[in-house]
């Protein structure tokens, strides 16, 4: 469980993180979404105790991470997959990390196997592809078998197979009851992975929302309609508050009416519908519109209670 309360970070007159409050629950994958520069990495650095907050607190399991006896066994993290010395082998890199927290070397081989780097673990990591580097970063996050896993943009540089792999890995970790917090600036990467989203823009909380709630927001207002006697149907549907625009010669889009109502009118008048398609916005669209005017939104934390 990660708890962030009134977290603020200012650099001079620039506010990178602005009074952010949210809690990341165990047992699910939580996506941390925001456009580039919205303050995701700064927030994560404060959770890690690397950057000191200007105000507010960030805790892991109720305490600042630096107060944990062995931080890596409480929270495993990936900040920057490139943060590895290029001439050091993946094995030595992980071994050096492991010994700080008293984690045995046998665990290094275990995590290298988990991320699929068992074969190349002894080679210098400078020769790794972007995707292998991400896997090494994830191996480091798993070293301490932690209750909380926090990954900053772990999908960057992964191929489709790699993205699928990480999705299953993170969902398995969550199913184990762990807290999984993953940042991304792309909703398309996260929507199949996460059950909950913390969405920020310009350092402020925009939504702390479940994927189901987000899908409700994505339901569109328009319905695309095709019918054998389209002109007759359009005439019958016209009413106050109903807006009908023709998409092309054979299709109109109707807003202000339920798809069910449109179908009923067609049936009652013996008109055969050939298409009745409610418009559904993609989650990416919803995310884009939410963050497009981030400034107008104010943080409305609705899930701050301890859990």
């Amino acid at each position: 469980m990660i708890e962030v309360a009134n977290l603020t970070k200012r650099y001079g007159s620039f506010t990178a993180v602005d009074d952010l409050t949210f809690a990341v629950q165990p047992g699910i994958v939580t996506g941390f979404l925001g456009p580039n520069g919205s303050g995701k990495s700064t927030t994560m650095r404060m959770i890690l105790g690397l950057d000191a907050p200007t105000a507010g607190t960030a805790t892991v399991g109720g305490r600042a991470l630096s107060r944990h006896d062995r931080p890596l066994t409480s929270l495993g993290f990936l900040l920057d997959a490139g943060a590895v010395h290029p001439t050091r082998s993946a094995f030595d890199h992980l071994r050096a990390l492991a010994v700080t927290n008293g984690i045995p070397t046998s665990r290094v081989d275990e995590v290298l196997e988990i991320v699929g780097l068992g074969e190349v673990g002894r080679r210098r990591s400078g020769g790794f592809s972007l995707g292998m580097g991400q896997r090494l970063g994830i191996a480091a996050a798993l070293l301490g078998d932690p209750e909380v896993v926090m990954l900053d943009e772990p999908v960057n540089g992964l191929d489709p197979e790699g993205i699928l792999w990480i999705r299953h890995l993170l969902q398995d970790l969550a199913r184990d009851g762990r807290t999984v917090f993953v940042s991304s600036h792309l909703m398309s990467e996260m929507e199949l992975m996460a059950e909950h989203f913390v969405i920020i823009g310009q350092g402020r909380l925009i939504e702390d929302i479940s994927v189901d709630e987000l899908r409700v927001m994505a339901a569109g207002e328009k319905t695309h309609v095709r019918a054998d006697r389209l002109d007759d149907l359009v005439g019958l549907l016209r009413a106050d508050g109903v807006d009908i625009v023709s998409d092309d010669r054979e299709t109109v889009s109707v807003s202000g009416l339920d798809p069910g109502d449109i179908g009923a009118v067609a049936r009652d008048n013996g008109i055969a519908l050939t298409a009745l398609v409610p418009e559904q916005r993609s989650l990416e669209d919803v995310f884009m519109s939410l963050t497009a005017d981030a400034v107008q939104y104010h943080g409305a934390p609705n899930k701050v209670a301890a859990g």
């Binding site: 105790g49 107060r67 890596l72 993290f77 943060a83 010395h85």
Partner: peptide
């Protein structure tokens, strides 16, 4: 400084705490 240039120092500090 080499550890600062790769960014590894952040991993080190966060892992060690003090």
């Amino acid at each position: 400084a080499g550890e600062y240039s790769t960014g590894l120092i952040r991993t080190t500090f966060a892992s060690v705490g003090r």
